[in-house]
Amino acid sequence: MITRVRTELREYIVATWLSGDPRGFADDTDLQQAGVLDSFSTMALIAHLEQAFQIELEPADVNAETFRSVETISQMIAGRMPRPKESR
């Protein structure tokens, strides 16, 4: 589950804010320090996450810690998503 979220999120960020150039971009890249996320792009990202993963984020979910990297965002999202039924 979290792997799918990570992949989806990484691809979205690379396509939207890195002109499709994934070089040097890792799951633990600090998105603010790297100049990828600012307050406006964070709002755009939230709208995308809510739509793509069918979740609603609370104001408490949105802070510098949770939006630090692909990894931290993925963990937060995985925690908000309905648990899948045990498949086996």
């Binding site: 890195l18 070089r23 040097g24 971009f25 890249t29 603010q32 320090q33 790297a34 100049g35």
Partner: peptide, 12 residues
């Protein structure tokens, strides 16, 4: 040089 390098440089 990657896009990320350039952004990180500008952000600094």
């Amino acid at each position: 040089v990657s896009v990320l390098d350039v952004k990180r440089h500008c952000a600094s």
